[in-house]
Amino acid sequence: MNLTDKQIDALQEIIIIGVGQAAGVLNEMLSSHITLQIPFIKTFSPDLVKQELGLKLGKGKLSAVELEFFGSINGNAELVFPSDSAAELVSILTDEDMEFSESDLDELKVGALTEIGNIVISGVMGAISNLLSQNLEYFLPSYIEGNIESLIKNKNLEKESTLVLAQTRFFIEETNIQGDIILIFHLGSFHKILEVLERLEED
């Protein structure tokens, strides 16, 4: 299933609003300006999604916070950092020197990163569910560390299904921090989104 340009434009707009809101929260926390890239949106099969993300995020170690949502729309939202970006971000937020803990974010830091992920993802999801007027339910946010394989777990992705991937990269100015906001909607859910999008257009 492919998206039309119009559909992509509409979805991009919604995601820009959501991500923009999240960037605002981050901005407030760090008092640094956040630069956002225009979201990339495309449909994929589950296997290809991994391949695509591998290309986009690289093979290095990643730190991510994941939020699974369900209801009328199913999917995952993730905030992904390269591990060194994650370490730098946490050390800015907690004012702690990371000299000896660069390689593995110790447990003390995991909580902080989870909270940041929670803030950003809640911002995105709040905006999206408001715009689409959908009531969603959520699991608790969880922290994941590893490569792409461990980030995207197959068990939640139906083998046959098509996924819609939306990815936005952001940079925090005056630091070396970059990160990605990734949204994966399951196909069934996506029909719902398109339906709503069409209705919005008509209004």
Partner: peptide
């Protein structure tokens, strides 16, 4: 407020809050 409106859970971690 976001959570009270049905949004995702809010975490106040022991590191930041």
């Amino acid at each position: 407020q976001q959570t009270l409106k049905g949004g995702p859970a809010t975490v106040f971690s022991s590191q930041l809050h």
